[in-house]
């Protein structure tokens, strides 16, 4: 009952390839769950099926106890699921500020007519949005890039901007697809602190895909492991670390998962 997101026996096939197979997963309110697995395990596919980019072959996705199957991505976002992309997908012709502002569109009260007539309430709303945008940018230390074209940001900053943009849609659940990819260890750990912080501050749940084991183990209290589309383990970090299946999937043998795995 009190789970926010529920995946019930989700399967998705691309031709002969079963990318995700009979996956069950629950995420409760305020939880930070890690989703790990080797390359091609199906992590991004899970994101795509939750956000409506791909349609399920079978199974069902429920969010706040409502079925999401068959809904359009923008409807799903409006229900409260936001995501970032593994291969950064910012709005490349827009500034940093506008990237975030555009994502505020979802909860806009004004439409075409107000944009043209510029009523008082429209101006007030635009100011509120500007304020909200700047606040979000400040949290991630991006406020000085306000008018910078997003393409000229550093890789790490682009990833951070994607999180800001996702937050601007006021999500209840945030899906982060390898948010720390390409960052150095210092940046990584500060990003993870940040994720921990926003999760509490905005009272949201987070599903985190990340390759760096140390990072995931450090902040997630529950971890789900995929391999070839199958869930092979789920539990708290210390249990996952010892799980022989996980160790085998990751290292292909009886080796121990080291504290760092880039």
């Amino acid at each position: 009952m009190d789970s926010l997101l529920q995946l019930n026996h989700c399967t998705i096939r691309f031709g002969g390839l079963t990318a995700v197979s009979d996956l069950c997963l629950e995420i409760g309110p305020g939880e930070l769950v890690g989703l790990i697995g080797p390359n091609g395990a199906g992590k991004t596919t899970v994101f795509n099926l939750v956000t409506g980019v791909y349609q399920l072959t079978s199974g069902e996705v429920r969010f706040c106890n409502e079925r999401l199957n068959g809904l359009k991505p923008y409807t799903i976002t409006s229900r409260g699921i936001a995501r970032t992309f593994q291969n950064i997908r910012l709005f490349s012709s827009l500034t940093v500020f506008d990237n975030v502002r555009a994502a505020c569109n979802l909860h806009l009260k004004h439409g075409v007519r107000d944009a043209l007539l510029r009523s008082k309430s429209f101006v007030v709303e635009e100011e509120l949005i500007a304020k909200k945008t700047m606040e979000l940018l400040q949290i991630f230390g991006l406020e000085r890039f306000r008018e910078t074209m997003c393409k000229s940001l550093s890789y790490g900053d682009q990833r951070r901007l994607e999180i800001v943009r996702a937050l601007a849609t006021n999500p209840k659940l945030l899906l982060l697809d390898e948010p720390a990819a390409g960052m150095n260890p210092v940046e990584k750990s500060s990003l993870m602190k940040l994720i921990d912080m926003i999760q509490e501050r905005f009272q949201i749940s987070v599903l985190l895909v990340e390759h760096d084991m140390r990072v995931v183990m450090g902040i997630c209290r529950r971890i789900c492991v995929l391999d070839y589309g199958l869930k092979i383990a789920e539990g708290p970090p210390e249990v996952i670390r010892q799980n022989p299946k996980v160790v085998e999937a990751y290292l292909g043998g009886d080796a121990q998962i080291r504290s760092s795995n880039a």
């Binding site: 923008y74 992309f85 502002r101 569109n105 601007a168």
Partner: peptide
């Protein structure tokens, strides 16, 4: 700004609720 997001990246735009 929604018009421009459609031009830049439709998948990302939809993911942002547009």
């Amino acid at each position: 700004r929604g018009f421009l997001t459609v031009r830049d990246d439709e998948v990302a735009a939809e993911a942002m609720g547009i």
